[in-house]
Design a binder for these strands. Structure first.
Lengths: 328, 328
DNA sequence: CTGAAAGCGCTTACAG
DNA sequence: CTGAAAGCGCTTACAG
């Protein structure tokens, strides 16, 4: 494999000059530039990124830490970020924490040791000291979907309180009087906020909250929904706290034999690909995932380029997709 | 940020000794080892992986190139590989080609320049010269899901011909006499093989093949299915060529008002998360995605460790999940 | 406009 | 068992 010295020898210049051509330094004469370019092409030379990174003390790599890559919301975010990074010449190191604070800590350390140029983080936990340590090193972090405790990090969020509140109101407005909520994990901001939005809406009309814990997981949500149905024969509405749990909840509803929407109306928070496919098609609050991920990437890049000093927080709104699961 | 010299100074040894401790070289005396370890802990030192990579002319990073990360089959493969890599101390650079040969070529070049230690590739195209160039450099490649033309690459595959043939037979055995196929892209081996399996089964019973092209995409599959239904009023069975296309096909069926399975029976190849949720639940041929991805990772690692010289090919079988979309 | 030289932070033969 | 020194492949002040 040719290196910068082979090219220099071939073009009869110094390796400094080859480097200047590589980095589009304007101080190289056109003739020399052409000669070097020809040598590069002839030898099939590609600069060693690792050597460059070591010398410049920075890489062209961004770290992407997600809490669950199999959640379609995050899958789409990963795709969006990867694609934007590709276009701008960055590489993406993907890390999946499975909501584990230990994995998050470990990955943050690894990414710092790899000298990534910036990190987009869907935090499994917000109060991770490692986050501050990484920021101390000057590596910018953009929190996606959930906040972190260090205020130096930018954040791209959705208004989960409003979404859950509106979802609950949607059922209330359709005359439902016994509405349950399948909650995610309360250690996670998203889970807390959505639960809070549900509680707010219930309080507004003086209905008693009925809450089951689905742990952001399909299997747990299935059991939780089954229990909710068993313990509350009058239940006529359910709000589901995220897309993975909607699979479990739908399964439990199917097994229970209750009709949707006649017996029970349903609203999902998050709008997974299968929402329109199930029968009846599920009414859902969709996050603008693509726009959010894109915003997070742009924020990171502007930080990397030091175009901005003040941390920013962007909050996106959900969009209601009315389908069939709440009746006419 | 402390480097190896700061640690050496702090522990009153040479940086060579620190390096030996870091790399568990047995020749370091226990006392010195302990002293160095203490200094490392006290200073919070973490070795610079980039410098190590440059010196050792290799990295701890593997490249993962997939053709479509939003396809749940590949999402799960990515998750499996990332997780296995994490456990063994490797990093994963994720690349998504969107089935574009140009992106594949570009990513292969980037990964080679980054000196990844090996690559797992779901090829967008099999006859990419860059694949051979990367192999020439000594970087092992494991093809996942689809073959590549260079025989030095290992491969982990599924028996797509048999799966499609069995799927079609499943409908034939249930008395269906006018069976259509929603095909993927024929430039891709998976697409060709599944189409061929369908054709084989149809030939066996002397039925005329009815083929529509869904391009491995949801929207195209929806249009294709709608046309198929319009042009073939007698259609009483459909085999769907992959999971993304099944969303489109189901949507078109729903809009057409035909009843499943009474009017039309349905078998999907691939078993996405929503297969069990739709009404009626979709009968499907599932790939052992997790096992495949794990096998690919193990193959790559054994190559990296040079435990093996001869290229290997592993072929997995699909598993039939009988649900409701083909009747009793 | 160009080159010689130093140095990024490691690892590893070599010598003792 | 330990250290001095070379070198991985680049980039960049410095000098001319």
């Amino acid at each position: 494999m040719p290196n910068i010295k082979s090219v220099a020898a071939h073009a009869n210049v110094s390796s400094a000059t080859v480097s200047r051509v590589l980095n589009n330094d304007p101080r190289v004469s056109p003739e020399v530039r052409a000669r070097v370019r020809a040598s590069i092409a002839e030898l099939g030379y590609r600069p060693n990124r690792i050597a460059r990174s070591l010398r410049k003390q920075t890489s062209e790599t961004i770290g992407l830490i997600v809490s669950d890559i199999e959640n379609p919301h995050f899958t789409r975010a990963v795709r969006t970020i990867e694609s934007a990074a590709y276009e701008q010449g960055y590489r993406v190191v993907l890390c999946n924490t499975d909501e584990s604070p230990e994995k998050q800590k470990s990955y943050l350390e690894v990414l710092a040791a790899e000298q990534v140029i910036g990190i987009i983080l869907v935090p499994a936990t917000s109060d991770d000291l490692t986050i501050s340590q990484v920021l101390d090193l000057g590596v910018p972090i953009v929190a996606l979907d959930r906040t972190v405790d260090d205020e130096r990090a930018d954040a791209v969020l959705t208004d989960n309180v409003t979404a859950a509140r509106e979802a609950t109101r949607h059922l209330i407005n359709r005359g439902r009087t016994c509405i349950g909520f399948i909650a995610g994990r309360s250690e996670i901001r998203t889970g807390r906020d959505r639960l809070y939005g549900y509680q707010l809406a219930m309080e507004e009309v003086g209905q008693e909250p009925i809450i089951a814990t689905g742990g952001f997981r399909m299997d747990i949500a299935q059991r939780a929904t089954a229990e909710l149905l068993r313990d509350n024969p009058d239940l006529d509405g359910v709000v589901i706290g995220n897309n993975l749990m909607s699979i479990g909840a739908l399964q439990a509803l199917k097994e229970s034999g209750r009709r949707v929407p006649e017996d029970i109306a349903l609203v999902g928070i998050d709008d997974p690909p299968w929402a329109a496919l199930v029968s009846p098609a599920m009414t859902a609050f969709a996050q603008p995932t693509h726009a959010m991920a894109h915003a997070a990437f742009e924020m990171l890049i502007s930080r990397i380029r030091k175009e901005r000093v003040v941390p920013r927080e962007m909050v996106f709104q959900f969009e209601l997709k009315v389908r069939e699961s709440c009746g006419g």
